[in-house]
Amino acid sequence: MKKIFYYETKIGKIGIVQNNEKITNIYTSDKLSSDGMEVIETPLIIEVYNQLNDYLEGKRKSFDFPIDPEGTEFQKKVWKELQNTPYGETLSYKDIAEKIGNPKASRAIGMANNKNPILIIIPCHRIIGKNGKLVGYAAGLDMKKQLLEMEKENKNKND
Protein backbone atom coordinates (compact mmCIF):
# COMPACT_ATOMS: atom_id res chain seq x y z
CA MET A 1 0.00 0.00 0.00
CA LYS A 2 1.23 3.48 -0.84
CA LYS A 3 1.99 5.81 2.02
CA ILE A 4 1.63 9.59 2.03
CA PHE A 5 2.46 12.34 4.47
CA TYR A 6 1.84 16.08 4.25
CA TYR A 7 4.10 18.98 5.11
CA GLU A 8 3.90 22.74 5.01
CA THR A 9 6.86 24.20 3.07
CA LYS A 10 8.05 27.51 1.65
CA ILE A 11 6.11 26.68 -1.53
CA GLY A 12 2.94 25.60 0.24
CA LYS A 13 1.55 22.29 1.39
CA ILE A 14 3.00 19.19 -0.25
CA GLY A 15 2.29 15.48 -0.07
CA ILE A 16 5.14 12.98 -0.41
CA VAL A 17 4.15 9.48 -1.56
CA GLN A 18 6.13 6.31 -0.96
CA ASN A 19 5.52 2.88 -2.46
CA ASN A 20 7.71 0.11 -1.11
CA GLU A 21 11.07 1.82 -0.53
CA LYS A 22 10.83 4.42 -3.30
CA ILE A 23 9.19 7.81 -3.80
CA THR A 24 6.52 7.79 -6.50
CA ASN A 25 4.91 11.23 -6.20
CA ILE A 26 5.27 14.68 -4.74
CA TYR A 27 1.99 16.57 -4.83
CA THR A 28 1.46 20.28 -4.40
CA SER A 29 -1.51 21.77 -2.62
CA ASP A 30 -3.76 21.70 -5.69
CA LYS A 31 -3.52 17.89 -5.99
CA LEU A 32 -3.46 16.67 -2.41
CA SER A 33 -5.46 13.51 -1.89
CA SER A 34 -4.79 10.46 0.23
CA ASP A 35 -7.42 8.26 -1.43
CA GLY A 36 -6.31 4.63 -1.20
CA MET A 37 -3.14 5.50 0.72
CA GLU A 38 -2.07 5.19 4.32
CA VAL A 39 -1.29 8.58 5.88
CA ILE A 40 1.91 7.89 7.79
CA GLU A 41 5.29 9.56 8.23
CA THR A 42 7.96 6.99 7.31
CA PRO A 43 11.75 7.37 7.65
CA LEU A 44 12.07 7.69 3.85
CA ILE A 45 9.36 10.35 3.64
CA ILE A 46 11.06 12.28 6.46
CA GLU A 47 14.38 12.10 4.58
CA VAL A 48 12.75 13.35 1.38
CA TYR A 49 11.11 16.21 3.26
CA ASN A 50 14.44 17.17 4.87
CA GLN A 51 16.24 17.12 1.52
CA LEU A 52 13.45 19.10 -0.13
CA ASN A 53 13.52 21.65 2.68
CA ASP A 54 17.30 22.01 2.30
CA TYR A 55 16.80 22.55 -1.44
CA LEU A 56 14.16 25.24 -0.81
CA GLU A 57 16.56 26.94 1.64
CA GLY A 58 19.30 26.96 -1.03
CA LYS A 59 21.45 24.46 0.88
CA ARG A 60 21.05 21.50 -1.51
CA LYS A 61 21.34 21.23 -5.28
CA SER A 62 20.65 17.54 -5.85
CA PHE A 63 18.71 14.74 -4.20
CA ASP A 64 19.81 11.39 -2.88
CA PHE A 65 16.93 8.95 -2.45
CA PRO A 66 15.28 6.29 -4.61
CA ILE A 67 12.44 7.29 -6.93
CA ASP A 68 10.06 5.26 -9.05
CA PRO A 69 7.85 7.55 -11.15
CA GLU A 70 4.91 5.80 -12.74
CA GLY A 71 4.44 6.48 -16.43
CA THR A 72 4.92 5.23 -19.97
CA GLU A 73 8.34 4.17 -21.22
CA PHE A 74 8.58 7.44 -23.18
CA GLN A 75 7.68 9.53 -20.12
CA LYS A 76 10.26 7.67 -18.00
CA LYS A 77 12.92 8.30 -20.66
CA VAL A 78 12.09 12.02 -20.64
CA TRP A 79 12.04 12.21 -16.83
CA LYS A 80 15.40 10.44 -16.63
CA GLU A 81 16.88 12.99 -19.04
CA LEU A 82 15.36 15.90 -17.11
CA GLN A 83 17.37 14.79 -14.09
CA ASN A 84 20.56 15.63 -16.04
CA THR A 85 19.54 19.30 -16.32
CA PRO A 86 21.99 21.14 -14.04
CA TYR A 87 20.81 23.11 -11.01
CA GLY A 88 20.29 26.76 -11.88
CA GLU A 89 20.22 26.16 -15.63
CA THR A 90 17.43 25.81 -18.15
CA LEU A 91 16.98 23.84 -21.34
CA SER A 92 14.25 23.98 -23.97
CA TYR A 93 11.80 21.24 -24.80
CA LYS A 94 13.68 20.93 -28.11
CA ASP A 95 16.98 20.46 -26.23
CA ILE A 96 15.47 17.52 -24.31
CA ALA A 97 13.97 16.07 -27.50
CA GLU A 98 17.42 16.13 -29.11
CA LYS A 99 19.07 14.61 -26.04
CA ILE A 100 16.74 11.61 -26.12
CA GLY A 101 17.33 11.16 -29.85
CA ASN A 102 13.92 12.34 -31.03
CA PRO A 103 14.44 15.95 -32.24
CA LYS A 104 10.86 16.39 -33.47
CA ALA A 105 9.30 15.39 -30.14
CA SER A 106 9.21 18.82 -28.46
CA ARG A 107 5.44 18.72 -28.01
CA ALA A 108 5.60 15.16 -26.58
CA ILE A 109 8.36 16.33 -24.22
CA GLY A 110 5.99 19.04 -23.01
CA MET A 111 3.25 16.48 -22.41
CA ALA A 112 5.66 14.22 -20.46
CA ASN A 113 6.76 17.25 -18.41
CA ASN A 114 3.13 17.97 -17.61
CA LYS A 115 2.70 14.41 -16.28
CA ASN A 116 5.83 14.48 -14.09
CA PRO A 117 4.70 12.89 -10.80
CA ILE A 118 7.73 13.91 -8.72
CA LEU A 119 7.93 17.70 -8.98
CA ILE A 120 11.21 19.43 -8.15
CA ILE A 121 13.09 16.14 -7.73
CA ILE A 122 12.59 15.49 -11.45
CA PRO A 123 13.30 19.14 -12.37
CA CYS A 124 10.77 19.81 -15.10
CA HIS A 125 10.69 23.42 -13.87
CA ARG A 126 14.08 23.86 -15.60
CA ILE A 127 12.57 23.25 -19.03
CA ILE A 128 11.41 26.35 -20.89
CA GLY A 129 10.22 27.34 -24.34
CA LYS A 130 12.87 27.69 -27.07
CA ASN A 131 12.23 31.44 -27.07
CA GLY A 132 13.30 31.55 -23.40
CA LYS A 133 9.77 32.02 -22.06
CA LEU A 134 8.42 30.17 -19.07
CA VAL A 135 5.72 27.85 -20.32
CA GLY A 136 3.65 25.22 -18.59
CA TYR A 137 4.27 23.89 -15.12
CA ALA A 138 1.93 21.55 -13.27
CA ALA A 139 2.23 23.61 -10.09
CA GLY A 140 1.77 26.91 -11.95
CA LEU A 141 4.07 29.40 -13.63
CA ASP A 142 4.49 31.47 -10.45
CA MET A 143 6.05 28.48 -8.69
CA LYS A 144 8.19 27.68 -11.74
CA LYS A 145 9.50 31.25 -11.74
CA GLN A 146 10.10 31.13 -7.97
CA LEU A 147 12.09 27.86 -8.22
CA LEU A 148 14.20 29.10 -11.14
CA GLU A 149 14.97 32.41 -9.42
CA MET A 150 15.91 30.61 -6.19
CA GLU A 151 18.24 28.26 -8.08
CA LYS A 152 19.84 31.12 -10.01
CA GLU A 153 20.42 33.02 -6.77
CA ASN A 154 21.95 30.00 -5.00
CA LYS A 155 23.76 28.41 -7.97
CA ASN A 156 27.27 29.40 -6.90
CA LYS A 157 26.75 29.06 -3.15
CA ASN A 158 28.18 26.08 -1.22
CA ASP A 159 30.32 24.87 -4.13
Rank of each mutant, 00 (worst) to 15 (best):
F65Y: 12
F5A: 12
T42F: 02
R60C: 05
L44E: 12
F63C: 04
E8Y: 10
N25V: 06
P69D: 05
V39D: 03
R60F: 02
E73D: 14
P69Q: 08
N50A: 06
Y49T: 12
D54R: 08
F5R: 10
K22Q: 13
I14N: 02
P66F: 06
S29H: 12
N20M: 10
Q18N: 09
V17K: 03
T42S: 06
T72H: 00
K2M: 09
L56P: 00
I4K: 01
V48W: 01
K31E: 14
I4F: 02
E21A: 07
L56V: 13
T24F: 01
T9F: 01
S62T: 15
Y6G: 01
K10T: 11
T9R: 04
Q75G: 01
I11Q: 03
D30W: 04
P66N: 12
G15Q: 03
E41D: 15
D68F: 08
E70Y: 10
S62R: 11
T42E: 05
E70W: 03
F5S: 10
Q75E: 13
I14M: 05
I16C: 07
G36N: 13
E70H: 12
E8L: 11
K2C: 01
K3L: 02
E47M: 08
G36M: 05
M37N: 06
T42I: 06
I4T: 03
T42C: 04
Y6Q: 05
S29T: 14
E8H: 14
D54C: 07
G71T: 00
G15V: 10
Y27F: 13
D30L: 07
T24G: 06
L32C: 08
D68A: 12
F74W: 08
S29I: 14
E21V: 02
P66K: 13
F74E: 00
Y49C: 07
M37F: 06
P69R: 01
M37D: 02
I46P: 00
G58T: 09
E38F: 10
Q51C: 09
N50P: 10
E8A: 10
G12C: 09
I4S: 01
T24C: 06
N53L: 08
S62D: 15
N19M: 09
Y27M: 12
Y49D: 11
I26L: 04
E70M: 04
E73T: 13
N53R: 13
L32V: 14
G71V: 00
N50R: 15
T42Q: 05
D64C: 05
G12Q: 06
G58M: 04
Q18E: 15
V17R: 04
D35A: 14
F74H: 00
Q18A: 10
L52M: 13
Y7N: 07
E21W: 03
D68R: 02
K3R: 15
Q51D: 07
E70R: 14
G36L: 08
Y27D: 04
I46L: 09
K76H: 09
D64R: 07
E8P: 06
I4C: 03
G15D: 04
G71M: 00
P43E: 08
G36E: 04
K31D: 12
E73K: 02
D30I: 11
G58H: 01
I67D: 02
I23S: 03
T28K: 07
E41M: 07
D30T: 15
Y27V: 13
E57L: 14
D68I: 01
K2Y: 01
N19C: 10
